[in-house]
Amino acid sequence: MKSRFLSVLAMAGLGTAPVFAQDDSGTEQFISPVSDEAMFEGGGGYTSTDGEELYNTFCAGCHMPAGEGASGAGEYPPLSGNPRLEFAAYPITIIVNGQGGMPGLGHLLSDEQVLEVTSYIQSDLGNDYAPDGTLQMVADTRPVEEGEVLAEHEVEEENVDPDREDGGGNETGVVRHRIPNSNFPILLAAEIPADATLVYLSGTVPQVVNPDAAEGSPERYGDTTAQTVSTLASIEQKLASIGLDMADVVKMQVYLVSPEGADAMDFAGFMEGYVRFFGTETQPELPTRSVFEVAGLANPSWLVEIEVVAVRP
């Protein structure tokens, strides 16, 4: 930057009169954060690669000079003290592609400019995050133009990922990401389109498998495997009653109680029941899943309680 005059902040609230300073020769000198030569050169685009200067001449218009944001009928979120700036991927995505009322700005900035301004807002404006963005990250964030030849790594990610399944039997638009190089029957991630209808089932508990067994006896509900099977069967019924099936399940939380006399939950026993419902020949879909050991459930005989979330096709 060739010259930097007084901060624009000093000018706020001065009404409509242009602000001038007198230099030694007595000619009027306009107070600007950016030198004359730099402001509108380059056919109207942004030419600077200085993160601070880009911020002051671009982002500051809405997010304000100190990153404090602004509030009218709606808001411009503050960047100062914004925990979402800890990792560069988030601001880079928004700068390049926009969000809400903010237009995507990627077409006005080079990869280097996006990176520099990202690093600036991560580490300045009262933020103290270590800039972790890379030029590659910016390039990867840009939308793919029609007819664009993809780089090799993009082709792998987008088109030939063997661990990715689009849709599923029920055309929900859900993207199910398998765990790479693993046969463990849960997903790495499930990607749910924004217009999907999510259905949350209440926690479901085991069914009595031996009505002849005494109340409170371990035989009445069976072991962890038996309880898992009756619980999942019950879930399958509930889903069917509202027009869904196990293939629609995208998320599962499993609560297991340690059987009497055991040191810990019977995870292997649970898995034995689980694999009868998920990843089978007739029902190949898998959900994302978490399993927790808990101290107890509402009925002392219960060893299993399961919650699921399904996507309506």
Binding site: V8, M11, T16, M39, F40, C59, A60
Partner: peptide, 22 residues
């Protein structure tokens, strides 16, 4: 739209007026 619009937006009113005069 465009970059110039964002540049004017980042200015204070008096600066925008000054640039219009220039």
């Amino acid at each position: 739209r465009g970059a110039d619009t964002f540049k004017f937006n980042a200015m204070q009113p008096a600066e925008r007026i000054e640039w219009a005069l220039r």
